[in-house]
Design a protein around this nucleic acid. Structure first.
Length: 873
RNA sequence: GCCUCGGUGGCGGAAUUGGUAGACGCGUUGGACUCAAAAUCCAAUUGUGGCAACACAGUGAGAGUUCGAGUCUCUCCCGAGGCACCA
């Protein structure tokens, strides 16, 4: 038999599998379903990259594994084919995005085939194809009818380089996630999905899904629920009220001024009463000019007082000044705050700068200790000194200490105003005598006991929150960081928003009968800052023809994240022209069982897809509320030096080239073996020899050894070692694929092959079972052996996944660990089922153990069956 | 600043969830085969001391719980990722 050569076999089987329709989902099957989903790629001109290779290999292994386990598996693929790169390429070269997309997607399909990925190619999805975006528009229409997508003018993020508005999720550190241009704020009319209506569900339902903990936590943080109260402040001599949101209504008595966002709408209303309005306008303009980044970086507080008007604190009737300042954001809460300098750091800073009253209403102080000694000594002295200072303060309720690099921060809270004063006094007196301690006046942001708060004095913050809110007629409520999803894009290569406007300017859905609402082709791509569709003659004519004179089209296109927010719902029924997916198929296939893809999608795609499913459930289009039951991320693929691969660094590795050199099976196995799926993988082709040698060994075992067919009891003399190793391997590989621990599955198969290599005669049934285990990882080579060497008629992927026999993995004789005082002193061979008494006798026979015990009394014996015996002396 | 995840040989990484630390692979060293090289095979490979048996140390640092800690608790240091004037 010939040596293992990937070149001879991989292409052959790829063609054969396609001919035999091996990867097609079974349309009418009684088998249990399993839906394995990949994050579909954006078809760029560069082709698949190594990151795709890794995650697609992982899902392919799961697909083949589940298939052999007897499931009917849906494992589809598609293309997120609308988007900016194709459009930018068109601007540069004049080639229509449609052409580019075709070329690129064909290339992707070819590459996926080369990797041996078993996608069902009869269920492809292209988001830029009218047969798909028809349904994107249909869903938009449904959302429109149900008030889940609304048109409003809002301050949105604007990227001047991409010449379009973008969603909050698409801003990274104040810059455009695509082109890194600094984002400006603009007031632009546009369409918004009302994702904020689902904020609570989006948080709560994360408990239902099996996702990485950090992904859930990050998504929760992104939604950013904070619980607090809405309170109203009267403006003196006006009927208008300023509404604020606060998480600390318990500090209401400490409010000494208010701040409005510069964009706050009340400013227009009160204009005539504000004596320094010119100053206000100047500040407003300055704020507007600032990019998001400036506003974040300029931490120095700025602002202007509204002269001539005052607000009234509803708790105590005091008149307090009102400011505008850009540290208050228009888009969050109510765009206005009550300022409590003693208990909020930002308010504190602002109050210091503008010399405003600072009034403490929660009884507590911070005490700092700066290190002028070694840190361990500091810890000691810190505790000691704090103890001295507040030892006799009976009113001290709690104290805790946080040590940091710059010293230690001690939090002291007290139960009454009196005790706070006594405590603070004692600390201050102490400080004059000691240089290691410094009392730093900072606002106290913890909860504590109330003081200076009238009849609420003595209550804890927790109690006071509801009571004070009630007292001033406010309401307890929550607010979110999450913004509504802005989806209008002033670009060409996207899904047209299926809306037309009446001559009076009223928006109307174009109607299901007019779908797909085609993207016009008579359009100049060159960006002008205006939507390219505005200049389409065909589109305007189409609208007037259908709706009458004076009617005009919506000319913005949708964010491409809309396309990808529901694509997985289309896969089971891609040919359906009457529904986005039939009811039966929805029932059969959803939710998705496992979804694999990058962690960078936590805030965008994964959040949007969850929103879509929830919104669709709400209007009765589907009956499940979470799209992806299990989610796992793959790590990044790094170059040899451990640097992230990128075009600009020129360290991109081309999967095609690697497949040509080493074969798809070796590339797949290397990616899976090098590190756990979720960890980063270093792509070092020098290391690929390891898995290549492993494949060669398997080849050798199956082609050069004498195989016993095991009929008529001929396998009675098969070494026990091989049988045990096989069953252990079946167990390990099965469990490891289930838990996506592909690296350890492969190492277990390596152990088996190393053992098998040592024997000259091997049982063929055992090797067949082993081949099945390896098949998901190395589909080509195992198929070659399965059919060409072992002469099986049908594909290995139609074989049944083996099961292990628990009896077979038990060792008769084990090494029992013998410990003395917790240290391993000997290992003795004993029968696996040995009793404690027998083990004790045997262990004590050991010379080594005797040496360590001699002269001492055995106080205790710990026996772990089949594992160890431990003597305590 | 806050949140999350990590830190184990020369390297990538294992460790049944508290029970032999370093599986498996790469690399390195020695040997076999060869005129030679490649490939392949065999052996060794955490460190220190010792010819050896063996002993001691050892999973970022320090403490703690335990007969026993990579694993649990606390504090600290370092790294990666995310969020960041969100009231």
């Amino acid at each position: 038999m010939e040596k293992y050569t990937h070149k001879n076999i991989e292409k052959k089987w790829q063609e054969k599998w396609q001919e035999e329709n091996l990867n097609k989902v079974e349309e009418n099957s009684e088998k249990e379903k399993y839906y394995v989903l990949d994050m579909f790629p954006y078809p760029s001109g560069d082709g698949l990259h190594m990151g795709h290779t890794e995650s697609y290999t992982a899902s392919d292994i799961i697909y083949r594994f589940k298939k052999m386990q007897g499931y009917n598996v849906l494992h589809p693929q598609g293309f997120d084919s609308f988007g900016l790169p194709a459009e930018n390429y068109a601007i540069k070269t004049g080639v229509h995005p449609k052409e580019t997309t075709k070329v690129n997607t064909d290339n992707y399909l070819e590459q996926m085939k080369m990797l041996g990925l078993g996608h069902d190619l009869d269920h492809l999805v292209y988001t830029s194809d009218p047969s798909y975006y028809k349904w994107t528009q249909y869903l938009f229409g449904k959302f429109f009818e149900n008030n889940l997508v609304v048109q409003k003018t809002d301050t949105i993020n604007w990227c001047s380089s991409c010449n379009t508005g973008i969603a909050n999720e698409q801003v990274e550190g104040g810059k455009c996630e695509r082109c890194k241009t600094e984002i400006e704020q603009r007031d632009v009319p546009g369409w918004f999905f009302r994702i904020t209506d689902f904020a609570d569900e989006l948080i709560d339902d994360l408990d239902k899904v099996d996702w990485p903990e950090h992904t859930k936590k990050n998504q929760k943080a992104w939604i950013g629920k904070s619980e607090g109260a809405k309170l109203k402040f009267k403006v003196k001599d006006f009927k208008e009220k300023i509404e604020v949101f606060t998480t600390r209504p318990d500090t209401l008595f400490g409010v000494t001024y208010m701040v409005l966002a510069p964009e706050h709408e009340l400013l227009e209303t009160l204009k005539s009463s504000i004596s320094n309005f010119d100053e206000i306008e100047k500040y407003q303009k300055e704020t507007q000019k600032k990019t998001e980044l400036d506003r974040m970086e300029g931490k120095e507080k700025t602002g202007v007082e509204l002269k001539g008007i005052k607000a009234i604190n509803p708790a105590n009737g005091e008149e307090i000044p009102i400011f505008i300042a850009d540290y208050v954001l228009a888009g969050y809460g109510t765009g206005a705050i009550m300022a409590v300098p003693t208990h909020d750091e930002r308010d504190f800073e602002f109050a210091k700068k503008f010399d405003l009253e600072i009034r403490q209403v929660v009884a507590g102080v911070y005490l700092w200790i700066k290190p002028n000694k070694e840190l361990t000594e500091l810890e000691y002295s810190c505790l000691e000194e704090l103890g001295k200072v507040i030892k006799n303060n009976k009113g001290t309720k709690k104290k805790h200490i946080n040590f940091g690099t710059n010293g230690a921060k001690i939090v002291c809270s007290f139960d009454t105003k009196e005790n706070l004063e006594i405590g603070t006094e004692a600390i201050k007196n102490y400080l004059t005598n000691d240089t290691k301690l410094s009392f730093i006046e900072v606002c106290f942001t913890e909860n504590g006991s109330l003081i200076n708060s009238g009849k609420f004095d003595g209550l804890t913050s927790g109690e006071a929150k509801t009571k004070i809110t009630e007292f001033v007629g406010g309401e307890m409520t929550s607010t979110y960081r999450l913004r509504d999803w802005s989806i209008s894009r002033q670009r060409y290569w996207g899904c047209p928003i299926p809306i037309v406007y009446s001559p009076e300017g009223e928006a109307k859905f174009v109607g299901e009968e007019n779908l797909p609402w085609l993207l016009p082709e008579d359009v100049d791509f060159v960006p002008t800052g205006e939507a390219p569709l505005k200049n389409s003659k065909e589109l305007h004519e189409r609208v007037e023809k259908l709706f009458g004179k004076g009617w005009t089209p919506e000319v913005d296109t949708m964010d491409t994240f809309v396309d990808s927010a529901w694509y997985f719902l289309r896969y089971p029924d891609t040919e359906n022209e009457n529904e986005f997916c039939s009811v039966e198929k929805l029932k059969k296939w959803f939710p998705v069982d496992i979804y694999i893809g990058g962690a960078e999608h936590t805030y965008m795609h994964l959040l949007y897809a969850r929103f879509f499913v929830k919104a669709m459930k709400k209007i009765g289009l589907i009956d499940f509320d979470e799209p992806f039951m299990k989610l796992r991320h793959q790590g990044m693929v790094l170059d040899k030096e451990g640097v992230k691969m990128s075009k600009s660094k020129g360290n991109i590795v081309n999967p095609n080239e690697m497949v040509k050199r080493f074969g798809a099976d070796a590339v797949r196995n290397y990616m899976m073996f090098a590190a756990p799926l979720e960890d980063d993988v270093v792509w070092d082709e020098n290391n690929i020899v390891g898995v290549y040698r492993f494949l060669e060994k398997v080849w050798k075992i199956c082609t050069e050894k004498e195989l016993i067919d095991c009929e008529n009891g001929k396998c009675a003399d098969v070494p026990k070692e091989i049988k045990t190793a096989l069953h252990k391997t079946i167990k390990k590989v099965t469990e490891d694929i289930e838990s996506l621990s592909f690296n350890t599955a492969i190492s277990q198969m390596m152990i088996f092959s190393n053992k098998a290599l040592k024997h000259e005669k091997l049982p063929k049934p055992a090797l067949e079972k082993f081949l099945i285990l390896l098949a998901p990882f190395a589909p080509h080579m195992t198929e070659e052996i399965w059919r060409e060497v072992f002469k099986n008629e049908k594909s290995i992927f139609l074989a049944k996944w083996p099961e292990y026999n628990p009896e077979m993995i038990k060792d008769d004789v084990i090494e029992l660990i013998v410990q003395v005082n917790g240290k391993v002193r000997d290992k003795i061979k004993v029968e696996a089922e040995i009793s404690e008494e027998d083990a004790k006798v045997k262990a004590l026979e050991s010379e080594k153990v005797k040496n360590h015990i001699k002269g001492k009394e055995i106080r205790k014996v710990i026996f772990v069956k089949g594992r160890l015996i431990s003597f305590v002396v």
